[in-house]
Design a binder for these strands. Structure first.
Length: 606
RNA sequence: GCCCCCGUAGCUCAAUGGAUAGAGCGUCGGCCUCCGAAGCCGCAGGUCGCAGUUCGAGUCUGCGCGGGGGCACCA
């Protein structure tokens, strides 16, 4: 069992024990059928679950699933499958309550520790992506304000997923979509202009619904310091355009700095505007027009997924009461429109009538269409992952519809919706918003808590769960945050290793990472926990739910504590100490890997 | 009116349809002459309701109840 293959692909072998068991069960069922122990039926795909620890390491419930097809009791089926399972050095099999339970042997578990050590930084990597290009587009907040903690949640999720897809064998591209087109940008420019003038003592009122926040004021000041007062004498319209552009660049520079502090990096900042200037928008719309899915109606251009006409009453903003009455009005005339049943509601792409400014006639959806084409078809990202806040919830169905309409495979597009962060303020939950002036800047939180604690909070809940952010608690929480529990375990291992290094016994302990031997239940449980890493990477890569890491990281630290409390390293007999030191190192590698996947540091001292 | 998400312990959250639903915080009680006590051990405490599907439901389906978000010229 030695040789190059094992050295280079150890991580693959470790991961394969689970799949090996699956196949062994399928073969055993077939063998049982051939021997007449089981009747004929189609063999289903076998799934393995993680049972309670006292039941073993993997459990198959296939016997219960087969009870009906085989017309036999689950227990009897399980026993007959087990009868045809050949003995294997890596595991033992027990039948209990209709389950087939597989327990990895101490010898097998012991052997995996040296495999982990040999895999090193690559430990935990899997080959799910097979080198396919994937993209995670995240962040993408409007460049009209500093990064809020909402943005922090977005990029922490996105960055962690990008790390994960990389570990899962994809070539990953990280992108921020810059909304540098549209009316908000113009409004932002006007706000910058007003603050710029005020900075130089010239009286200039803020535009209606302008950006009133300090972040815009500070950005305007920075612009003023850069370019001086030269725009005071330029015509206002020109000055607004020029200062708006400078303002966006300055704001993006601030945001990029915040991202760096958060340990988030991007490969590209993609300009929304470029979709128009390059003609990509026109080309994508032409494809839809050729399919008859673009409709002129009421002075606007609409996307209608099935080409059906725009319904009466769709073209104006409604109140809740109007929606209610609308529904009852429409029932008669819509009864025959069966093909609209499954299509998404038509959506405006461009309006000539209501929006006066020609530059602002396109809606966001107008750029979403060429953008998805650009991602999936032109750049070949499969999947193209979107990370969106829940205010974009209604856009999900539309983008999928547009993807289908363009002839792309919608399975190549993965849109994630995370829930908002609300603020605890005076005992009340409040929704945060830049316009409301109660936004919390990521930089301020980083000043107080640091990137690791912030990322940990952002990852600690499923994206489907809102996060309630309490600034007062956060301030006190510095040393109580659960992230320190995980990092502490890592630092503690480093400390042990330092101690071993400085003691005289270092040669004995470090001599050999082969033939390690473990017997104590705390040792074996720790190894079991470490061996879950590739499966966790697979879980996060397939579900795109990064919070699983937080649970797993804590479990590793917990298992290590159990080992630490029960199994002394330095005082143990030399051969025992040698094995345990290597297990501690494997634990350190695994902890560090999970922390790095989450974008956090693995400190050697705290 | 319609669509999406959520409802699990006092609080904040976990749980690929599997066996006895797990953690943290908080409460209470223990553990440093011993590799880092930012730690460990213990006690107490829970699936919103009613049906259904399934060998098996916190998980899937339907209907309620409660909360959040959205429903076309705002990004």
């Amino acid at each position: 069992m030695t040789g190059i293959a094992q050295c280079r692909y150890t991580w693959l072998l470790i991961f394969m024990i689970r799949d090996h068991i699956k196949h062994a069960i399928e073969h055993a069922i077939a063998a049982a059928q051939a021997a007449g122990d089981l009747p004929a039926f189609d063999i289903p795909a076998v799934n393995l679950a993680k049972p309670r620890p006292d039941m073993g390491d993997y459990a198959a419930s296939v016997a219960m699933q087969l009870a009906r097809a085989a017309k036999m009791a689950p227990m009897a089926i399980a026993q007959r499958i087990a009868k045809h399972l050949p003995a294997h050095p890596a595991y033992t099999v027990e039948v209990a309550a209709g389950y087939l339970n597989f327990r990895l042997t101490a010898a097998h578990l012991s052997a995996q520790v040296s495999d982990i050590l040999q895999a090193g930084a690559a430990w935990g990597n899997i080959n799910l992506g097979k080198g396919q290009q994937a993209q995670v587009e995240h962040g993408s907040a409007n460049p009209t304000g500093y990064a809020t903690i909402g943005t922090a949640r977005n990029v922490t999720v996105g960055d962690t997923l990008a790390n994960t897809l990389e570990a899962a064998g994809y070539v990953v591209h990280r992108e921020w979509y810059v909304n540098d087109a549209g009316s908000q940008v113009k409004k932002f420019g006007a706000s910058i202009y007003a603050r710029y003038c005020q900075h130089f003592g010239k009286d200039e009122p803020m535009p209606a619904n302008g950006y009133m926040g300090d972040d815009v004021t500070q950005t305007a000041q920075r612009v003023a310091e850069m370019v001086g007062d030269q725009y005071l004498n330029t015509p206002k319209e020109q000055a607004i355009v020029a200062l708006g552009r400078l303002g966006i660049d300055t704001m993006m520079a601030t945001i990029k700095h915040t991202m760096t502090r958060l340990n988030v990096r991007f490969d590209n900042f993609f300009s929304e505007k470029s979709l128009y200037s390059s003609g990509a928008s026109d080309r994508a719309l032409a494809m839809l027009r050729a399919k008859g899915l673009l409709i002129e109606h009421d002075g606007a251009l609409w996307f209608s997924e099935d080409g059906s006409p725009i319904r009466k009453g769709q073209a104006k903003k409604k109140t809740d009461a109007e929606y209610a009455s609308d529904a009852s009005d429409d029932t008669d005339e819509d009864a025959d429109e069966s093909k609209t049943q499954n299509a998404v509601q038509a959506v405006v792409i461009r309006s000539d009538r209501v929006i006066s400014d020609p530059d602002e006639r396109a809606t966001y959806f107008c750029s979403d269409i060429p953008y998805v084409w650009n991602k999936v078809h032109e750049r070949g990202f499969k999947p193209a992952v979107y990370v969106w806040g829940e205010d974009h919830q209604a856009d999900v169905a539309r983008l999928y519809a547009a993807t289908r309409a363009l002839g792309l495979n919608e399975n190549d597009v993965k849109i994630l919706i995370y829930r908002f962060i609300t603020l605890m303020s005076g005992g009340q939950e409040v929704r945060m918003g830049k316009r409301k002036g109660n936004a919390i800047w990521t930089d301020d939180v980083l000043d107080q808590a640091g990137p690791d604690a912030l990322r940990y909070i952002m990852l600690s809940r499923s994206i489907d769960t809102k996060i309630v952010f309490d600034l007062d608690v956060l301030k006190e929480q510095n040393d109580k945050n659960p992230v320190y529990y995980v990092q502490y375990a890592h630092a503690r291992i480093c400390s042990i290793e330092r101690k071993v290094e400085s003691s005289g016994s270092v040669d004995n302990l470090k001599s050999n990472i082969q033939n390690l031997k473990f017997e104590h239940v705390a040792e074996l449980n720790l190894i079991r926990k470490l061996l879950e890493l590739p499966e966790i990477v697979e879980l996060v890569a397939t579900t795109l739910q990064p919070h699983h890491y937080v649970t797993y990281a804590r479990e590793i630290a917990q298992s290590f504590s159990g080992f630490y409390e029960n199994c002394r390293i330095i005082d143990a007999a030399p051969d025992v100490a040698a094995s345990r030191l290597q297990l501690a190192k494997a634990s350190r590698l695994t902890l560090a890997k999970v922390l790095h996947l989450m974008g956090m540091t693995a400190p050697e001292k705290m």
